[in-house]
């Protein structure tokens, strides 16, 4: 087998193992709950029978291994369990499947993250690469100082400054992002503009700094100086000598920041009351609705792991030493 295929498979295998262990950790969340949580969920008035029935429904009378197998098999089929909310002490159950809560919101979150990525990734790469090429120029120093400041800001600070300027003082955008499944595309973009803008500012700062550092590191390689000494123009040095070796670091930077986006989305969704998974998760944490928390966490963690996996694989398949083994 070609070593590159082997390395890719090894990396994929590692990714699967990681996902498995992460699912174990998230599953263990319900194990760690204090014994009387049934009472807490159903309310003080719940009778012992309803509490016992609730525990039976959760399978708490079964061994943990069985419940994990049951749970993960459900997850594989898109069944994330049933929400705790909507249960009453009387035993009346108006709870909804977690997947029904998450699915529409996941679509919204993906839309917001996608919108941000489409703007932020090219912008950050452009700023980072140009700052690295014109290193120490006024442009570089300005961009550097600005981004160092921006990465120090909490997301909600950026969000509220934007709200103050763009919705309150000069009302251009709506401050709350009311979108639903039937909102038209253009309207969706308009209503998501504020959260997307906030995320873009935060992400671009991070990503631009990392891109700049990666490119500067690359341009310091002896083979770049050698290329200059063979009379290659700046353009040729960049396109022919730096770029083929830049895919791995750039892919890492992009994946890292998209992963960061996954987390940043939580706070920004809350600020703008954007109906996404992040807000759902925060509400679920406040009300200690464990199945919903588990479902959201599983989605965020899986996205994060897959993004890093993709970056690693890009690094592997563009590595000349692996592409052309001895």
């Amino acid at each position: 087998m070609h070593p590159i295929v082997k390395t890719v498979f090894q990396r994929l295998g590692l990714g699967v193992v990681t996902l498995f262990i992460v699912s174990l950790i998230i599953f263990a969340a319900i194990e760690l709950l204090p014994g009387d949580f049934g009472q807490a969920v159903l309310g003080q008035a719940a009778t012992e029978e309803t509490v016992a029935a609730f525990r039976r429904e959760l399978g708490l009378d079964q061994p943990a291994v069985w419940r994990y197998v049951d749970w993960i098999a459900g997850v594989a089929q898109g069944d994330l369990g049933t929400s705790f909310s909507g249960r009453a002490s009387s035993g009346v159950d108006r709870s909804r499947p977690v997947i029904d809560l998450i699915a529409p919101r996941l679509e919204n979150t993906l839309f917001l993250a996608g919108l941000t990525a489409v703007v932020a990734v090219p912008l950050a790469l452009f700023l980072g690469i140009s700052a690295a090429l014109y290193r120490n120029s006024i442009y570089d120093r300005t961009v550097n100082a600005l981004t160092l400041t921006t990465i120090s800001f909490p997301e909600f600070f950026v969000a509220y400054v934007l709200i103050l300027c763009l919705t309150s003082l000069w009302p251009i955008f709506p401050s709350l992002s009311n979108i639903s499944a039937d909102t038209e595309f253009a309207e969706r973009v308009y209503r998501s503009a504020m959260p997307a803008l906030t995320l873009t500012l935060v992400i671009v700062a991070h990503m631009m700094r990392m891109t700049r550092a990666a490119i500067i590191n690359l341009l310091a390689s002896p083979y770049i100086q050698m290329a200059r000494l063979t009379g290659a123009s700046q353009r040729e040095v960049i396109l022919k000598h730096a770029l083929p070796n830049a895919w791995a670091p750039i892919a890492t930077v992009i994946a890292f920041n998209l992963a960061y986006l996954v987390v940043g989305v939580v706070v920004v969704e809350v600020v703008f009351v954007y109906p996404g998974v992040g807000q759902l998760m925060v509400d679920a944490v406040s009300s200690r609705d464990i199945p919903v928390v588990q479902g959201c966490a599983l989605i965020f963690a899986a996205t994060y792991i897959v993004l890093n996996l993709v970056a690693d694989i890009v690094g592997i398949v563009t590595n000349p030493k692996l592409l052309h083994p001895k």
Partner: peptide, 8 residues
Amino acid sequence: AASFNPAH
């Protein structure tokens, strides 16, 4: 070893 571009 360091002065040749590893990609070409």
